[in-house]
Design a protein around this nucleic acid. Sequence first.
DNA 1: CTCTTTCGATACATCGTTGCAGAATGCAGG
DNA 2: CCTGCATTCTGCAACGATGTATCGAAAGAG
Lengths: 335, 335
Amino acid sequence: MAVTMNDVARAAGVSLKTVSNVLNNYEFIRPATRQKVLDAIAELGYEANLTARSLRSGKSRMLGLVVSDLSVPYYAELASRLMTVAAARDYRVLVEQSAATRANELTALQGSLSQLTDGLLFTPLALDADAVAAARRGTKPLVMLGEHIDDPRFDLVTMKNVGAAKAMTAHLLAGGRRRIAVIGASPEDRAGSPGLRLAGYREALAEAGVAFDPALIVPSEWRRDGGSTAVARLLDGGQPFDAVFGLNDALALGAMHELLLRGVRVPEDAAVAGFDDIDEARFSSPSLTTVAPGMNEIAERSVQLLIDRIEESGKAAEGTHVEAQFELRIRASAP
Amino acid sequence: MAVTMNDVARAAGVSLKTVSNVLNNYEFIRPATRQKVLDAIAELGYEANLTARSLRSGKSRMLGLVVSDLSVPYYAELASRLMTVAAARDYRVLVEQSAATRANELTALQGSLSQLTDGLLFTPLALDADAVAAARRGTKPLVMLGEHIDDPRFDLVTMKNVGAAKAMTAHLLAGGRRRIAVIGASPEDRAGSPGLRLAGYREALAEAGVAFDPALIVPSEWRRDGGSTAVARLLDGGQPFDAVFGLNDALALGAMHELLLRGVRVPEDAAVAGFDDIDEARFSSPSLTTVAPGMNEIAERSVQLLIDRIEESGKAAEGTHVEAQFELRIRASAP
DNA sequence: CTCTTTCGATACATCGTTGCAGAATGCAGG
DNA sequence: CCTGCATTCTGCAACGATGTATCGAAAGAG
C-alpha cells in the first residue's frame, strides 16, 4: 500500500534504522549516506506514518483546543489564529466543543481529546479550578484561556479585563455619559469575565466620582439576542441611560440593534461600546466602539507556552500567567 | 504509565485477546467472562489507546475538513455543525485552513491531513476537478462541499445556488425593485458560487422581463470590506440602483454599512439582500433579508455520505450529488 | 461410542516507527 | 601491534492494539 521506511531502506541499500536516523537528524551519518536516503525518499514519495510515530514516540504534535462553541465569532477567530500559529511550529490543532457544560468539559479533560494530543488549550466555563485540578489525569500540559479560572496551579493566558473595561468606561465618561448601562453581568459578579470587566467599570466610575447604580447592570447570556432583550428590559423598565457597555461585541451589537429598532439614536441618544473587536464590529452600522483584547498576542503566547511545556517535559515551574495588551477601538457608536 | 489491555487481561485472568474481543463485541464470549473483563476495565479505569488502534486497524475515526479560513462566519458555523453531527457518530473532525491557495489545497489533499483521517470534507476554491483528481492519492473517500467543483467523479453536497438566488431576486423584483446590483461576481462568471448565483439572478430577471445590465454586477472578495468598497464604487460611479444583492451575507452587511454611512436609507432607498443566513444577519440594523441555504442539512448529509463511503469501503458508485433545500428569510432590509 | 461441528478462549504475528545496545570501521597514541 | 575512542551504521525489542490460525471442550450427528 503506502511506502514505508522499509521500502526506502531497501531502495537506498541501508538499514531501516539508518532511514529513521536520517529523518530524525541523527548526528553521525556520512553526507553520502544521508543523500542516498534522501534520494530514495524523494524517488519513492515516502511520507512518515504519523500514527506509528505517535504510538512509538508518545507524541502526536497535536494540540487540543476546548471552546464552548466554534460558531461564536470570538472563538472562531481565536481558533483560526491558534491553528496558524501552531502550524508555523509544525503542530496541528484539534478542536472540541464543550457547549459550556460540566460533563463535556470533564470529558474533554479526561477523554480521548487529551489522549490524542500532546497538550490542551482549555477555555473553562463550567468547571472551577479545583474541579479541573481533580479531573486532570496524567501530566499532559494544560494552558488555560480566558478568565474563568485564575489559579497559581495553572498556566493562564488572558486579556487585561479590568484595565480594558476601566479604560472603555473612562472613555464613555469622557464623552459626557453619566448613566452607563452594563449588559452581561450581575451587580454581585466578582469573578470570571463578567466580574472582572464589571470591576473595571466600577473603578472608572469611582475615579470619576460617579455613583454606581445596580439598576443599570443587566445580566444576560453573551449572545446577540441577549443584548437585544437586555436593552428591551432597560427601555421597558423606564430606566434612563445614555450609554450601553456590552461586555462582549455580540451583546453590544444585539443591544445596538434593539436600540435602533426602538428609535433610540446611536450614538446621539445612547452610545454603545463592546468588547472583543470581532471583525463584524468594524462593519456594523454604526461601526462599533470596542476593546481589541490582543487576540494575536493571546494566540501567539498561549501556543508558545503550551509547546514550551510539552517540549521541556517536566520542569513545571509555577503556573505562568500572561496578560495580553489591549487597545481601545474608538468608532462611530461611541466617539 | 497508562493502563493497557495487558493490565486488564492480567486483572481479569484472561488473555489479552479476550479483552480485545470484549471491546470489539466479538460474539462468542461467555457472559461471565465478558463481565470479568468489564469489571477489570472499570476498576482499572482502562481506556483504549486510539493511536495503537489506529495503527493496527488503519482507521482513525477522524474526518478532515478543509476550508479556506475558519474565521469566516459561514465556515465557522459549518465546522461547528459538522463536528456535532460527526460526534454523534463517534467521529472527530480535524480542521485545516487552506487560505484558498493552490499550494495549501494540494497539501491538504496529499499531506498529513489525509493520512491522519479516514476521509475528507473538502471545500475546493483554488483547485478544479482535474487538479483534485490528479492530486488525489490512495483511495480515501473525499466529499466535496460548496459549488466550485461539480463533477460526476466526486461526491458533492451543496446548496441550491441557482434556485435560491433566483427566488431572492424574484422577491426583490416583487417588491418593485428594477435595478438590482449584484456584489461578488463578474458579469462573465458562469461557474462556482458566483456564477451559479448570478445565473439564478439572470433567470429571475428574464422571467420578469427586466433587462440584464452588466454595469450593475460588481466583482469583489467575499468579505465585509469587499461589500463596502463595491457599494462605494457603485455610488461614486453614479450608477443608479434600488437594491443590492450581496452574494453572501458578509458582502451584504458590508454593503449595508456603506450605504447607511453615505446616507442611503435601507430599505427605503435601496433594499439589501444576502445569502447564507449567518447568525449575525438577524441582528444587523436593519436585520438582513437573506437565503438560509440549509446548512443543517448540508452538515448532516455530507457527514453521513462521507461515513458511508468510509464504512462501505470500496463499492464506490458514481459520485452522489446532494442539494440541500433553501429558504428565504425575509427581514427588514428587503421586506 | 466415535466423529464432526460449534463455541470460547488463546498464542503469535503484525501495523510502521523509534530507543537502546552494540558491531564494524578508522585513526591516534603508546 | 594493540588499545582506546570517536564515528557510522545495524539489529532487535517495543509502543498497544487487532487479525489469523489454532486448540480444547462441549454439543450434536450417526
